[in-house]
Simulated scan of single mutants.
Amino acid sequence: MRITLVQGDITEQDVDAVVNAANSSLMGGGGVDGAIHRRGGPAILDECRRLRASKYGKGLPTGQAVATTAGNLPARWVIHTVGPVYSAGEDRSALLASCYRESLKVADSLGAATVAFPAISAGLYGWPIDDAARVAVTTVKAADTSVAEVRFVLFTEDALAAFQRAVGE
């Protein structure tokens, strides 16, 4: 598997699947989640509502992943995963790693060859970017997946630099 890093907007990535750093409601929100729902259009929200009405009545649990259409995005699918909120007093890194592993499992089940990830939990959920990058890169490198390319799409220069350091280690 090839790991690539780009600074940019995840909603503009021409890949098979874009990973959404969703909240458990699956109904959209701020940050990456809001951007994906806005650009992807109502088809994503419609599928999320169906998921909530069936399998995920209480919401998508932290660390799990589920796919929907990508709507108007250039991708084919959106893989929604709920990252943990950072806590200085509790190690939640296993939940963060699970987001990447479970998203790749969903990607494999879809036959996705290219997947774009944001820095899950590193925005609104407060995860320190260097540690978020370390967990992301370590987990993806160790994953048993058929995905050919994992593209980390980072919104800021600081995030890009943190992921560059993590890939280099």
Rank of each mutant, 00 (worst) to 15 (best):
T145A: 02
N72D: 11
G57A: 10
W127F: 15
G63N: 10
L45T: 13
P128D: 03
D14I: 10
E149H: 04
E169T: 12
D33E: 03
Q164H: 08
K141D: 03
G71H: 10
A132K: 07
D144S: 05
V78M: 06
D131F: 13
I3Q: 01
A17K: 12
L160S: 09
I129M: 14
A143G: 00
I129E: 07
K55A: 12
V6F: 10
A35K: 06
V6H: 06
A113D: 00
R2T: 14
A116C: 07
L154T: 15
Q164P: 03
A136F: 02
I10A: 14
A116V: 04
Y100C: 07
P118I: 05
H37K: 00
D158P: 02
T114Q: 05
T138V: 11
K105R: 06
T81F: 14
L73R: 03
S87E: 09
A65K: 11
V82E: 07
I120V: 15
G57R: 08
T11V: 09
R92D: 07
M27I: 10
A75K: 11
A65M: 12
I44S: 06
L73P: 00
V19L: 08
H37I: 07
A21W: 03
E149R: 03
A162D: 01
G59V: 13
Q164D: 11
Y100V: 11
L51S: 00
V140M: 00
G8F: 07
A70C: 09
H37E: 06
L60S: 13
A35Q: 02
V115F: 10
V78L: 06
V85C: 13
G111I: 06
I44A: 01
V82M: 04
G29S: 07
R39E: 08
V140E: 01
D144Q: 12
V32Q: 10
A161V: 11
R38H: 10
F163G: 05
R76T: 09
P42Y: 14
T156E: 04
D144N: 05
E47G: 01
V66C: 06
K105G: 03
G126V: 14
C99K: 04
N72P: 00
A159T: 14
P128M: 15
A88V: 13
K55R: 15
Q64S: 11
D131P: 00
G59F: 04
L45W: 04
V18T: 04
N72H: 08
P84T: 13
I36G: 09
T68A: 09
F152K: 02
A148R: 15
